[in-house]
């Protein structure tokens, strides 16, 4: 049962990235990383025990948000959802991400919650996780001594709440590819009331050539233990003319991709019933014929 107060823990407040990485290297999994805190502190009040918590609060240079038309978007580890919402470039070039950020949680939470934190939470319901999964991208992981590696977003989520992050790694940046003129994306979600975690969310990103889809990435949340891609549905759409018939077939194919369950927010039956509808609507929205 939840408590009003947090149990004891040591709070580490590194003043530099190198210091943070050294702490991670030294503690090897004994330290929990606190970015925005909007998930972690709730979990800790509900009984998740952490003896040592490392806050990224003093790492000022991790909150970058930079767009380059050639190389794409760089989102720092401490960049908040509110920063995305305020960015005209995100709005213009990454509609799925902007739409997911705009309705993410609440205005107060958007001021502290981070995009990277949402990804690393490993929840199958994360709204911007869905958007990033559809847009594609990589998470840059740093280790002490200058080590760097990139994790493809498709490889990030291992199982419910578990990611491919090693315990000495700190995610420092999320990189999204630059869109081209044929890139179309959109995000949609279903909730019980407007301010809510998703019952089901879906994000799509299509590379269009006229009416024809060259390639597609679809991501859906709350229909499996992790955020998932929808390969069967993607296969229907790729190379096809995006019309009602294609979308109907894609909507049908989604059933092969998903394995929803009953939970607090909805039922497996309902999720199966609306998954195709929402995929169809997201594609329609992305392609501008909603």
């Amino acid at each position: 049962m939840s408590s009003r107060v947090l149990t004891d823990f040591d709070l580490l407040l590194p003043g530099s990235l190198e210091e943070a990485l050294e702490i991670l290297d030294r503690e090897r999994g004994a330290v929990t990383v606190l970015s925005g805190g909007t998930d972690l502190l709730v979990m800790m009040k509900a009984g998740f025990e952490a003896d040592k918590v490392m806050s990224l609060a003093l790492l000022g240079d991790l909150n970058r948000l930079e767009f380059d038309s050639a190389t794409g978007l760089r989102i720092g580890a401490r960049t908040t959802l509110a920063q995305l919402v305020d960015s005209p470039e995100v709005r213009q070039h990454y509609p799925a991400l902007w739409q997911s950020a705009r309705i993410f949680a609440t205005p107060q939470l958007r001021n502290t919650a981070t995009v990277v934190g949402n990804l690393l939470r490993g929840s199958p319901a994360g709204d911007c996780s869905a958007a990033v999964a559809a847009l594609g991208g990589t998470l840059v992981m740093a280790t002490a001594g200058g080590g760097r590696r990139e994790i493809d977003i498709d490889d990030l989520w291992v199982s419910y709440g578990v990611t491919a992050r090693a315990d000495n790694e700190l995610a420092v940046e999320l990189r999204l590819p630059a869109p081209d003129s044929g890139t179309a994306s959109a995000f949609k979600r279903l909730t019980r009331v407007n301010e809510d975690l998703a019952k089901l969310n879906v994000a799509v990103c299509l590379q269009m050539d006229g009416d024809t889809c060259k390639s597609a990435r679809f991501a859906m949340g709350c229909v499996a233990p992790t955020m998932i891609r929808l390969p069967a549905a993607e296969a229907i759409v790729q190379g096809a003319k995006v019309d009602d018939e294609t979308l109907a077939r894609a909507a049908e194919a989604v059933q092969q991709d998903i394995s929803p369950i009953d939970d607090k927010r909805s039922t497996a039956e309902y999720r199966r019933s609306v998954a195709g509808v929402y995929l169809k609507r997201a594609v329609q929205q992305a392609c501008g014929f909603a």
């Binding site: 939840s2 709730v42 019980r192 009331v193 407007n194 301010e195 809510d196 975690l197 607090k264 927010r265």
Partner: peptide, 16 residues
């Protein structure tokens, strides 16, 4: 109890 919190017991908000 499954939903004894504002996270999971949902009331209509200002925009609903």
């Amino acid at each position: 109890a499954i939903n004894n919190s504002f996270t999971d017991y949902k009331m209509l908000g200002a925009s609903d």
